[in-house]
Simulated assay, not measured.
Amino acid sequence: MDALSVAVAANLPVLLWGAPGTGKTSAVLALGQRLGLPVEVVVGSIREPSDFAGLPVLRDRETWFAPPRWAERLAAAGTGILFLDELTTAPPAVQAAMLRVVLERAVGDLALPPSVRIVAAANPPEQAADGWDLSAPLANRLIHLDWTVSAESVAEGFIGGFPAPAAPLGQVGGALAGRARALVGAFLRVRPELVLAVPDGPARAWPSPRTWELAATALACTSALTPTQGPSLDVISGPVAYERVEVAGPGMERVRAELVVGAVGEAAGFELLSWLRDLDLPDPATLLADPTAPLPDRVDRVHAVLGSVVAHVAADGSTDAWQRAWTVIGRVARRTPDVAATAARSLAARRPHGATLPQAVLELAPVLRSAGLMP
């Protein structure tokens, strides 16, 4: 339930897998009520492709793909949760029509507001009435969470009432989001074969550039949720105030694992989490402030450090930070010029308006030429 709350707060499309009658729909409705968001429940098994692709009608001598009423209500509200229920009972044609809705928030010719969250629920095909396997393109657009219940939680719910999912809050813009993307990018440099691994048959989560993007957002969001933050921070999708949940330590580690593995699958997800656990990276601000601060020796860690530095500079936006970053790149260039060249290209693209080139750039001439930034 914590992972569901974090996914909704971060505007990550999520799919709950669970047996019938385990409270998936109730949890989503309770979360929407707690957040003050309208919830539109759309059951895939009783819908047609036109309910997602739009019904073609003639308007002003042009064809208009008219959206259904549930989409118009969400658009009018400006926010909300679109709950796609019984996904595995939707036939392949309906699943195909859902693709644009999940990825682009588009229903026919109507664009849903960016703050509309996508939550889906499904029974395993063998437990669903006339169940269908989830199509690979649709599965690759969602974070997959296994929805399980314990006898203890059910017993406590009947005695004391079932709790509504909490609504987390975190600051996940700028440096945090950039650092998470840099870490995922550094990992994929070490394991390039995990960038894309299309399954041969029906599958849930599997790695692709799209799902690595979901994993990076999950990393950034769970890194932001700490007990020390105040209640006025913004979530990654915009300035929407949510009541904060205290999830930290082992609990947040588990939520992070649920979301990352739910995005890219068990093999790739646990390998990324293990790699991140072994990293011991210096803080980017410390490196910019102290030219003699030690740098890691391993190449993958150097990639991660420079990516974090560039992300920090991009979020900071100041000329001073941008100029200091060239000193860090210069130190790396003396040992691993190819790694420095990649970071130099990213840093050069983020040059603040009016910033002058520091003296360190002249020492990097060979590296800049190899990066195509200097004749």
Rank of each mutant, 00 (worst) to 15 (best):
Ala3Ile: 07
Val8Gly: 06
Asn11Ala: 15
Leu12Met: 05
Pro13Ala: 04
Leu16Met: 14
Gly21His: 09
Val28Phe: 02
Leu29Met: 12
Glu40Leu: 12
Val42Glu: 07
Ile46Asp: 14
Val57Arg: 13
Arg59Trp: 12
Asp60Arg: 15
Glu62Tyr: 13
Glu62Lys: 15
Glu62Pro: 09
Phe65Glu: 10
Pro67Gly: 05
Pro68Asp: 01
Arg73Met: 08
Ala75Met: 05
Ala76Ser: 15
Ala77Lys: 10
Ala77Ser: 13
Pro92Gly: 02
Val102Trp: 03
Ala106Gly: 10
Val116Ala: 03
Arg117Thr: 05
Val119Lys: 08
Ala121Tyr: 03
Ala122Phe: 04
Pro125Tyr: 06
Pro125Leu: 07
His144Val: 00
Leu145Lys: 07
Leu145Gln: 08
Phe162Gln: 03
Ala166Asn: 04
Gly170Asn: 04
Gln171Leu: 12
Gly174Thr: 07
Gly174Lys: 06
Ala182Met: 05
Leu183Trp: 10
Phe187Val: 02
Phe187Pro: 04
Arg189Asn: 03
Arg189Lys: 11
Arg191Cys: 11
Arg191Glu: 15
Arg191Leu: 10
Leu194Met: 09
Val198Arg: 12
Ala203Trp: 00
Arg204Ala: 05
Ala205Val: 00
Pro209Cys: 09
Thr211Met: 06
Glu213Asn: 10
Ala215Trp: 00
Leu219Asp: 06
Leu219Gly: 05
Ala220Tyr: 02
Leu225Ser: 02
Pro231Gln: 14
Pro231Ile: 13
Leu233Pro: 10
Leu233Ser: 14
Val235Arg: 15
Ser237Cys: 08
Arg244Lys: 13
Glu246Val: 12
Val247Ala: 14
Pro250Gln: 04
Glu253Asp: 15
Val255Gln: 00
Glu258Gln: 12
Val260Glu: 02
Gly265Asp: 01
Phe270Ala: 01
Phe270Pro: 00
Leu272Thr: 03
Asp280Leu: 11
Leu281Ala: 06
Asp283Thr: 06
Thr286Lys: 12
Ala289Arg: 14
Asp290Phe: 10
Pro296Glu: 08
Ala304Pro: 04
Ser308Tyr: 05
His312Ala: 14
Ser318Trp: 13
Trp322Ala: 04
Arg324Pro: 02
Gly330Phe: 03
Gly330Asp: 07
Val332Met: 04
Ala333Lys: 07
Arg334Cys: 08
Thr342Val: 14
Ser346Met: 13
Ser346Val: 06
Leu347Ile: 11
Ala349Trp: 05
